[in-house]
Design a protein around this nucleic acid. Structure first.
Lengths: 197, 197, 197, 197
DNA sequence: AATGAATGAGGTTTCATTCAT
DNA sequence: AATGAATGAAACCTCATTCAT
């Protein structure tokens, strides 16, 4: 939605990297400035405040997440495949930008600022609701087993994804996330499709 | 393991509450002191540093987690029931001490201190390995379906638990965690036990 | 004296308004620029420095004050009427440009810059001396009572004017300054003309 | 009313001196600290914020002003003498603490902060109303001429006092304020007592 | 076991100003 | 005549910690 200037993108990117390296506490105006080779006040030409930087960062993340979800939903494939797409594209997004995992799991640190907390909340909710909806449809089409509430399956699938990414991060990106996601997805698929009854 | 004095327990408890209320950034010596009605230097009579407080907090958490795991494993019940016990007791532990959920999800904030990060890592690992081990045994006893790697099932079960607790927290403890855990567990059980083939 | 370009006049006017709204501390290059819809560096095309803006503002004020004083003195009327003219024209000047009252009462804020302080000092002195001179003449002509030093009467008259304007300002311009000045002047006139002895 | 510790008194005193020397803009935490030979953070042990320092300063001033007014009013003397007492004690207060004049005339700079502005406003109002009340009583007792509204006389007397003090300050305390106040008061007394009619 | 006073390091932000364009 | 990007200095304030008592 919002357009960012080159410098703004650089600043956001730097903030993400800093979170990755040392958590939210590591994101200081001084650090951002020194990484970009400018002084602290210079940052204020591009963002009104530090909170604005984080806000923009999360909004960008929200925007992308929404995009992935919308794309998956509108695809002309079976509902089961939509679930697969969401699962794999989501993990693919992280595989591409490993730093970003730090942001997602720093959620708790954003609970401080209501505006930031709201974004986190809405992203999680959108993912959950979107997923539950597709699963419900899949169950009606008998693509996914119907003996388990869609809500529960949504939690299970997203929870699995999250923990997988978290473990990848804790291992310091020590395995191939894409490959592992594929394997885990096969297991999830087996779980949720049999028995079809 | 380690014994704590009354004051130390109070301090740790206060730190947990502060994390709950405003994240790690909310945990300052000033806040802790004012909550306990003492001055900041007084805290140093009980802990050598702030890091030590957090360390003790996490060690306590680790100690309890280990206890639950060990208890579940040594119980004289089926392996499937052991998994159930771990799942339900874990969520029960959170239901009893809602503040604690904040600590678990603040993991990321501990990553900059190697000692703290290590504890987080080992708790998560122990849970994962313990779970995988029990699942493997269950699969051999044909209590849990064998067509899916135990590793994946462990991630799915623990991931589901984590996300459920996270959602409980985000909802500001707006639903009955114990009840919901029971329901979700029934779904998980259905998923992992059928088809037995 | 000095001629100002249109932009310069706008800048000075804006500075006055800003002082009115939030005191001297509110006068920043950023504020001035944003009010005029230009950028900060643009201001430097019109004034060499911020101090120069304030200096021009005060010089303009000094110029006008001098004008009023000179006009009153050269008028072909009684000395008492000259005093009246100064009193009423001065308050009329404020009634017309209420913002300006803020500048007069921010005098103190100008004391750290010697150039600014000098202007304030000379304006006040000119008013005082001019007033005292006219009063002395009036006393010689027996238009104003002679039992009180002209110096003291000057302080009383100017002090009354100042406090009246100050009260008008504190009341947020809540009464009609012109009308009130007329009334107060009648009282002052009564005070200084009787007994003539 | 409020009791201050020794350090708090020192800090307030330092702030007053700093205002005296370079206006409100000169009052910085760094300046205060360096004058007291301590570091900036140390100040925060004694006052929660810079605004609190100024607030305390003004409250102290308000407290003293109220005291002088109350004392004058309750004295067992004629109303005219009460007016005299207020006039002379007020100027005496300044003569004793010349720095304080800077604070009074920096009023405008306090308009920024509503809490500070409120104090200034209430001090001025109390002085005005107290004065007007006493003058009214004096007029009823025929101690002060009755042909002029008490309100106007109050403005004239207080305005004279203010301008006198202001001139003393602008002259860099170049004359004896007490002596001059005495002289000016004699003039004022002559003005407001004759003719008694 | 606790306090009062203080500190060094560092946080975010604002300010007047400069410079290349 | 004006802008976009930047800067050095300085503002207020917070943090974990220390030390004498």
């Amino acid at each position: 939605m919002t357009e960012f200037t080159e410098r703004q993108k650089e600043i956001i990117e730097t903030a993400i990297k800093l979170i990755d390296e040392g958590g939210i506490q590591n994101v200081t105006m001084k650090q951002i400035a020194s990484r970009l080779g400018i002084t602290e006040p210079a940052i204020y030409r591009h963002f009104a405040s530090k909170a604005d930087i984080l806000l923009s960062m999360l909004e960008q993340f929200k925007f992308r997440s929404k995009g992935h979800l919308a794309k998956a939903r509108s695809a002309n494939v079976s509902n089961l495949q939509k679930v697969e797409t969401i699962f794999l594209e989501h993990s693919g997004q992280f595989a591409e930008r490993p730093h970003m995992t730090a942001v997602v799991f720093s959620e708790e640190a954003f609970q401080d600022d209501p505006r930031l907390a709201e974004i986190i909340f809405s992203v999680m909710n959108a993912a959950h609701e979107g997923m539950a909806e597709i699963i419900t449809a899949a169950q009606q089409m008998r693509e996914i087993r119907g003996d388990i509430p869609a809500e529960h399956l949504a939690i299970t699938i997203l929870g699995t994804l999250r923990l997988l990414v978290k473990r990848w991060r804790l291992s310091k990106f020590g395995f191939d996330l894409r490959q592992e996601s594929q394997a885990v997805w096969q297991s999830l698929k087996t779980l949720i499709t049999s028995p079809l009854n």
